[in-house]
Amino acid sequence: MNAHVNLFHALADPARLRIVEVMRAGECAVGDIVERMEIHQSGVSRHLKILSEAGLVQMRPEGQRRLYSLRREAFEQLDAWVAGYRRHWESRLDRFDAALERQRTATKVAPLEK
């Protein structure tokens, strides 16, 4: 599956997107995420596994705890993918703006001479 599609598929689930939002503040233990979510620990763990398989999060063991953090590389890939579309639409919108300005200038009525 295309890497971008896999990333978007992982983020499409509202619970996983919320987990990513929770993790924006930094590294979190599963228990920290459970406290902020309305999902049991097993559900959070399942979502973290999917996010990990998609390359969005990484896990670091610390004794008995598993600490999860966002992977910068995945979000840089998403940003690069979106940037291509952003350039496309900004270019089109710039041309549209120029066309509107030409139309406004062409339709302005010359002031009446006395």
Rank of each mutant, 00 (worst) to 15 (best):
M1F: 00
N2M: 07
N2V: 04
A3P: 03
H4A: 13
V5T: 00
V5W: 06
N6S: 09
F8V: 07
F8Q: 04
A10P: 04
A10K: 09
L11K: 10
A12F: 13
D13S: 11
A15L: 15
R16A: 03
R16W: 06
R18N: 06
R18M: 01
I19T: 03
I19G: 00
I19L: 00
I19M: 02
V20C: 04
V20R: 01
V20L: 03
E21G: 14
E21S: 13
E21Y: 07
E21Q: 13
E21I: 07
V22M: 06
M23G: 01
M23Q: 03
M23V: 00
G26H: 02
E27P: 14
E27K: 15
C28F: 15
C28G: 08
C28E: 14
A29I: 05
V30W: 05
G31L: 07
D32L: 06
D32G: 03
I33L: 09
V34C: 00
E35W: 04
R36F: 13
M37N: 02
M37V: 00
M37R: 04
E38P: 04
I39H: 05
I39K: 05
Q41S: 10
S45Q: 12
R46D: 01
R46N: 05
L51W: 11
L51N: 03
S52F: 05
E53P: 04
E53M: 02
G55C: 14
G55V: 15
G55Q: 14
L56D: 05
L56W: 00
V57D: 00
V57R: 06
Q58M: 07
M59G: 03
R60S: 10
R60V: 15
R60N: 12
E62F: 10
R65S: 05
R66G: 05
S69W: 09
L70E: 02
R71K: 11
R72Q: 06
E73T: 12
E73K: 11
A74G: 02
F75L: 02
E76Y: 11
Q77S: 10
Q77W: 06
L78T: 11
A80T: 07
W81N: 00
V82A: 10
G84N: 02
G84Q: 04
R87C: 10
H88Q: 14
H88E: 15
E90N: 14
S91W: 08
R92I: 13
L93S: 10
D94P: 01
D94A: 14
R95K: 13
F96M: 11
F96T: 12
D97M: 09
A98H: 06
A99P: 09
L100Y: 09
L100D: 09
L100C: 15
E101C: 07
E101T: 13
R102F: 08
R102T: 08
R104F: 12
T105E: 10
T107K: 09
V109Q: 10
V109G: 08
A110N: 03
A110P: 03
L112M: 14
L112I: 14
L112F: 14
L112T: 10
